[in-house]
């Protein structure tokens, strides 16, 4: 078991609910959340932005040789999802029997991402599934 870092709970907003940032100066939306707007720089006025989790597949790949933490998950699919609100996010795509292609519509679901052995914490995270 690895001693969990503070990100286990500090990043819950992003991991559970896809909460990113929106710049009130220029309207740019960001995920993961940012302190400074990529467009506005010092004019940044960031607020939290809850994304719906709906989007479409921009790119994907099937992982056959996973890192140790996902050794029992392979093969699994990881992709880049363009959220309906704009930002592109990386995420696991669940194989629910529906074809996964570029352009496939997906929605976010709530799943475990990683369970740290028998005694460590359980990391919950959004994943995507084809709709």
């Amino acid at each position: 078991m690895e001693k969990p870092s503070a990100s286990l709970w500090r990043k819950i907003g992003a991991r559970y609910n896809i909460i990113g940032s929106e710049c009130k100066t220029c309207g740019a939306k960001h995920f993961p959340p940012r302190i400074v707007c990529r467009k506005c720089g010092r004019e940044t006025k960031m607020v939290d932005k809850k994304f719906t989790g709906n989007g479409e597949v921009v790119s994907f790949t099937k992982i056959m040789v996973p890192p140790d933490m996902f050794k029992d998950e392979a093969p699994y699919i990881v992709g880049i999802i363009a959220l309906d609100e704009g930002p592109k996010v990386e995420g696991h795509i669940i194989d629910n029997g529906k074809a996964i292609e570029i352009g496939t519509k997906v929605r976010a679901v709530f799943r475990t991402m990683y369970v740290d052995g028998d005694e460590g914490p359980i990391y919950y995270h959004y994943k995507f599934e084809p709709v």
Binding site: E73, I94, V109, F110, R111, T112, I122, Y124
Partner: peptide, 12 residues
């Protein structure tokens, strides 16, 4: 699924 438990089902 491997990535589901009582908590994820409760959340959905």
């Amino acid at each position: 699924g491997r990535d589901e438990n009582a908590a994820t089902i409760a959340v959905e």
